Amino acid sequence: METHINLRDVRAFCAVIDQGSITAASKALGETKGSVSRRIARLESQLGIALIQRVGGRAQATQEGLSYRKRATEALEILDTAQAELSDKDVIPQGHLRITAAQGLANNLHLGACLGRFMHAYPKVSLEVIMTGDQLSFREEQIDFAFRLAAGQLPDSGHKAILLTSVSLGFAASPEYLKEQGIPQHPDELAQHRLLLPRVFGDGLTVNMQPCSKPQQAQSFELTGHMLCQDTRFLAEAALSGAGITLMPPKVQEPHIKAGNLVRVLGDWESAQQGNLYLVYPARPLSPKAEVFKEFVRAEFQDQKW
């Protein structure tokens, strides 16, 4: 006999996994706990498998449940998008989004404030933010959006990406370090110093720099980091302690320079390249909640210079 799956049962299952409990899911769905429990039980009975297990007081998907959730979420996204496109009335974005960014990148961009403003504008959309330096799989981890920084173009991954802003970089060090180790006058001399570099660009970094007086004469310099970290604020703290010369965005170093705790290095040179900040997302039709998130973030960064 053909089994007809109730889409509301599927949505209830996804909500329980997203929210972590039947109680939280029932509030998000506007249903009673009993109603959500019955939906899960009916879906499990129709599929003939256990979808949810309780671990440490939280509802988690079983291995079969994880596999089902991946496909179910994709199907629901497609159905939601199709319904929105056919509807003549405005659709209120709602649902859950999973976002990932490196901890340091999120701090430097004040991403918490940005996402807070988004939630104020779209109160029916809930967010889950995963802080990690790893590039999580969009499919395996059910990621909707990723903030990623790259030196130049992103490598082709089959995903979509929009350039949010460019991040300029500059060298700085503490007065104590420069007094002890000397002040480099040319980028070639950086090889003789301890360098504190952003890990986001890899173990080493090739920088293109040009004299301010001769902006068309850029040169490439290979740098090796003595300290590598994804969080440039962490690197700033290390530089303040006299650990070495750091490379970071002006917005991070400027307060320390004004206070006299850091000194700009190689001020007669300027970077001929910038780090590019991208918002990356899967190459599939976007749901209303994902579409408004993409456009909101694009607008937030449109006029900002980092």
Rank of each mutant, 00 (worst) to 15 (best):
K124P: 05
A272V: 03
A101W: 04
V91W: 02
R117L: 01
Q210L: 13
L7V: 06
F293R: 03
E189Y: 15
I245K: 07
E189H: 13
Y281A: 05
R42F: 05
G112Q: 03
L240S: 11
R69V: 02
D303C: 10
H226Q: 04
V200F: 01
N108C: 09
D203Q: 08
L7I: 13
I183H: 06
D88H: 06
A101C: 15
N6Y: 09
K27I: 09
V10L: 08
S168R: 09
L29P: 04
G30C: 08
I130G: 08
W306F: 05
V263T: 12
P255A: 13
L223S: 01
I143C: 10
A12C: 09
L169S: 13
D80H: 07
A161C: 12
Q274C: 14
S220Q: 14
A146M: 09
I52V: 14
G244A: 05
L277Y: 02
K27N: 10
F293K: 05
F13K: 04
S271N: 04
I52T: 13
Q210P: 11
I49N: 08
S137K: 08
S67D: 15
V55Y: 03
E291N: 02
L196Y: 06
P175A: 14
L109V: 05
T32R: 06
Q273D: 12
A106C: 04
D268H: 07
K289W: 00
F221G: 08
S166D: 05
S157L: 09
S126K: 15
R42S: 11
L286G: 15
Y281K: 01
G275E: 01
K258A: 15
Y177R: 00
L76R: 04
L51P: 08
L105F: 00
R194D: 09
G112F: 03
D18R: 10
V125G: 03
E254R: 07
N276V: 04
F301L: 10
Q19R: 11
R298W: 00
H110M: 09
G65D: 03
I52P: 07
E44L: 12
G30V: 02
E77K: 10
A101E: 07
Q230M: 11
Q135G: 11
A106K: 01
Y278D: 01
T81S: 09
T32E: 03
V252C: 14
G30W: 02
F13Y: 12
S67F: 02
L76F: 03
Q94L: 08
F301C: 12
Q192L: 13
G158M: 05
N107H: 07
I99V: 15
R148S: 11
A172N: 07
L105K: 02
R298F: 00
T73C: 12
G30Q: 05
A218P: 01
R69P: 01
A259H: 02
V91E: 06
S35C: 08
Q103T: 09
I99M: 11
G56V: 02
D18S: 12
Q253Y: 12
K89Y: 06
L205K: 00
H193R: 13
T23Q: 12
A41Y: 02
D231Y: 00
A12Y: 03
P211Q: 15
F118T: 00
L115C: 04
S220H: 05
S157T: 15
K294E: 01
G242N: 00
E189M: 15
G204I: 07
Q142M: 10
L223N: 00
